[in-house]
Every structure is written in C-alpha cells, then in structure tokens.
C-alpha cells in the first residue's frame, strides 16, 4: 500500500499545485508587464471570493450574477488602483512598491469582513461533493476542476502572450518601457490592462480556492504560497508558474504525508520556503526565468 499512498499524495499535490499556479500567475502577469511586485495577490483572491460569497449568501444572488458583480468590482478597482496608487510610484525603489501592495493587502483584510461579515462562507459550485473513486485512488472534484481551470487558463494565456497583438505589445512593454513608447505603444494603457487581467485571474483563483476550502480572511494566506511558486518557476515565465506550482504542491503533499507524523504538523507551510531559499541561493532567477539578475 506504500506506493498507493505515495501516488495519491503526488496526484493531490499536482492538482493543488495547479491551483496555486492559478494564484501565482496573477503575480507573474503584473511583474512581467509593469515590474511591480504585488504582495496583495492572495488578498485579491480573497476579496473576489468574499464578494461572490457575500452576494450569494447574504443577498441571495444567483451564482452568475455574484460572479459578474465580483468581476466588475475587481476590474474597476484595479483600474483605479493603477491610476491612483501605482502610476505615481513608477520609478520608485522596489521597497516602496512592495510596501504599497502590503498596505493594499491590509486594507483588503480589513474591508472584506467589515462589509460582508467575518464568518466562513461557502461558495457552492455546481459540481458533486463526493470524491471521484478511481481504482484505489480518491480525487476530490473541486481539485480536479481547479486543476482543469488552471491548465485551460494557462493555455489561453500562453496564446494571448504569444500570438495576440495586445499580448505581444505587453511583452514589449515588459522588456523596455522606453522602446515600446518609441514604437507607438501606449505603455500606460497596458499597465492598466495588466492590473485588470490580474484582477480577473484573482477572481478565478478566489472562486476555485473559495469553493475548495471556504471563504474567509484565511484565504489570503494563499498569497504567501505564491512566492515559492514564482521563485521556483522563474518570475517572468508562464510555463515556470505551472512547473513551480506543481513542484510546490507535490513537495507540500509529500512533506505533509511523511514528515508531519514525526514532528506534529505544520511542515506544509514550511518546506516550500526551505526549497525556495535553496533555489534562491543557487539559481535566483528560477527554473524558467530569464537569467537577468542585478548583481552587486
């Protein structure tokens, strides 16, 4: 039975990892196109999920309307955020932008429960609750759905960046603001677009995670999982996000399965960071990242 336990851990790890990737891709998107570091990605997901759950459970909206409301809010909010907070901060030190997003994260953590209540709320998606049994293995449908959404989204996203006009322009903006401006790209518009896209991804991540583990401020802890994922995969790579996510998911599941019984829990939150530190020392730009790192 040993190998079955192992395989089950790995499958669950892979699916969880894909769901992590869904959260992390918002971070990568922002970093790739605007060079800003978003410490509030987890809070974006949390807030989107709280809006959906709030409209669903408190005001009795149907699911699609709640999602539409959350989407509208995220897009408008991120548009405003870029205009009011982040645009004046272009060119400021990294520390300043990190702190601004941390401030944003704090606001979300306070605002969510203040508006929609602090109780844990469910987001019931129209999928079965029973785990899918396949031979000796159990997989929960929500994980499967999350992994599926994640892969589908990454595919669309990859196409967007590689083929579509806007995606190519966005990559150009990421490479060099000045050259893109000279080529007639409206750089500021793409900054707004990047933030709005990040808001959209956050909604997806929030929906999947919210229905998997319930919606409250704890959901924002997801944001802390983003960093090992993006560092492992490389900060500016979409493929890297998937691979990094899967690695983190599997490492977490295996350490929770094999080490937890000996030390009494909590290794899940700890091993990804140890792995990350090692990668940071050896290969700071990650597995798929561009090896441009400012050395001193």
């Amino acid at each position: 039975m040993q190998w079955q336990f192992f395989i089950e851990l790995v499958t669950n790890g892979v699916l969880t990892g894909l769901m992590y990737a869904l959260v992390a891709v918002g971070f990568v998107l922002i970093y790739k196109s605007t060079d800003a570091i978003n410490f509030a990605q987890g809070e974006f997901c949390m807030f989107a999920a709280i809006i959906v759950a709030g409209f669903l459970n408190l005001y009795g909206f149907p699911l699609w309307a709640a999602i539409a409301a959350a989407l509208l809010f995220m897009l408008v909010f991120n548009w405003g955020l870029e205009r009011v907070v982040l645009r004046p901060m272009i060119g400021r030190p990294v520390v300043a932008i990190i702190m601004a997003t941390i401030g944003l994260a704090l606001i979300f953590r306070g605002l969510g429960p203040l508006v929609f209540g602090a109780e844990t709320q469910p987001i019931p998606l129209p999928i079965p609750d029973q785990p899918i049994v396949w031979g000796p293995f159990f997989v929960s449908p929500i994980d499967l759905l999350g992994g599926g959404i994640s892969i589908a989204f990454m595919a669309v996203f990859g196409w967007f960046f590689m083929k579509s006009r806007k995606g190519v322009a966005m990559r150009a903006v990421a490479d060099s603001h000045q050259v893109s401006m000279a080529m007639g790209i409206n750089v500021e518009r793409y900054f707004v677009l990047a933030w709005m896209l990040a808001g959209f991804v956050a909604l997806l991540g929030g929906l999947v995670w919210g229905s998997a583990i319930g919606v409250d401020t704890q959901l924002a802890q997801l944001g802390l999982k983003v960093f090992p994922v993006v560092i492992l995969g490389g900060l500016d790579s979409i493929v890297g996000v998937i691979v990094g996510g899967i690695i983190v998911g599997v490492v977490e599941a295996i350490s929770a399965g094999y080490i937890d019984p000996y030390v009494g829990g909590g290794t899940k939150d700890f091993t990804p960071y140890v792995l990350m530190i090692i990668v940071l020392m050896i290969r700071p730009y990650g597995i798929f990242g561009k090896p441009i790192i400012e050395r001193i």
């Binding site: 901060m89 401030g103 704090l106 979300f108 953590r109 429960p113």
Partner: peptide, 23 residues
C-alpha cells in the same frame, strides 16, 4: 471585531497615503 478591521484599513491606507503623497 470592527475595531480590529478599522485598524487594518487605516493602517494600509496610511501606508499607501504616505508612500504616494509624502514618501
């Protein structure tokens, strides 16, 4: 509860305010 939430919001708001307006 509300006090704790107010504190977070004011905190975050002040950080952003000072960063943008008076670094």
């Amino acid at each position: 509860q509300v006090i704790a939430q107010m504190r977070l919001i004011l905190f975050g708001g002040l950080i952003i305010f000072f960063l943008v307006v008076e670094p």
